[in-house]
Design a binder for these strands. Structure first.
Lengths: 173, 173
DNA sequence: AATTACATGTAATGAGTTACATGATTGT
DNA sequence: ACAATCATGTAACTCATTACATGTAATT
């Protein structure tokens, strides 16, 4: 039930088409709540069908612009205030750490080195993004920056942890 | 395709039944790769059917003990060495941050305070776990500790970030 | 004229959750 | 006798991914 609220949240900020929303899912939300085109178009149809959105304009090439209704805003607020986020996490990267015993020490050290490098790369990429984006003072910019800061802290932590873990494993030999 | 390898990884350490594996999925792996009973039993059946596992003993109450085969070990090693982990992340907690603009500043501050407290609680819980568990020197203990350290660093980071973000939002008024 | 960007949709498959269904063994 | 634990399995449903299918409008 989260994609549903992601769509409502984006349309609470501004009216948009499925095509417009996909650009946001592929950029700002790519590391937070990825979604595919088929998911988004399907969800827009369902939300419009149940009155949380309405088609406020139709443009060239079959374009449909969706606007959130009062019912949609109520649903979004109630989701934010009355429900707890699902905090289930899956990390394939970390799962693999459990099984490093089946590899040789050299192979394990390589695995952790690659993870450290990947975290460092991602961190650099986020710094680049932060410098490059033209941050406005609209809601999505203000709160999007808080989310970006989370990404910066996360990738920094991951790099430090992976380097530490690599040294731990290297020390076992 | 990851649950499959989680099962193989656990059975590479020791022979076990589905029931035994569920205890691990509900404890050590609960925050890394959660799985339900119906998933695990299903996967064991498929893996035995394709020769990566075999039923090495049958016990009371229909208990079946599974042992990994050489083919299973090969598959596990090839997964670890030749394939990249899927790093797709979804965070409902962070998604909500994007939409805090629809709440009042007070409501947003509350949301971030709750997140900070939750991260602090989880951190404390992990510290308790670290002290309590009888860490052996088997592979799963050694590498499980590295994963636990990741959890400690993650929850510490989350608490700091949420407190920082709360202060940022409080400063907007 | 050709390419790129715009724009929406369906179908098949796989992964994960929840609920149901059933029963045997052990310990008190 | 009762309760707790052990033990496996199926069915229905939802969510997410990948691939397919189709066509229009704007730019170079």
């Amino acid at each position: 039930m989260t994609l549903r609220h992601a769509v409502l949240g984006l349309l609470a900020d501004r009216t948009a088409s499925g095509y417009d929303l996909m650009k946001v899912f592929d950029t700002s939300l790519a590391n937070v709540w990825p979604a595919t085109q088929s998911q988004v178009y399907g969800e827009l149809g369902k939300l419009a069908g149940s009155g949380l959105l309405e088609v406020s304009a139709e443009g060239p090439r079959g374009r449909k612009e969706y606007t959130i209704t009062q019912q949609g805003i109520d649903e979004l607020r109630s989701w934010l205030i009355d429900t707890e986020p699902d905090r289930t996490r899956r990390s394939e990267t970390l799962l693999r750490v459990f099984f490093l015993g089946v590899l040789t020490p050299v192979e394990s050290v390589t695995y952790l080195s690659v993870e450290a490098a990947r975290a460092a790369d991602e961190h650099t990429e986020l710094e680049r993004l932060e410098a490059q984006v033209d941050w406005g003072d609209d809601d999505l910019s203000v709160y999007g920056r808080l989310a970006l800061e989370y990404g910066l802290r996360l990738t920094a932590m991951q790099e430090e942890w992976a380097s530490w873990a690599r040294d731990q494993v290297a020390g076992l030999t």
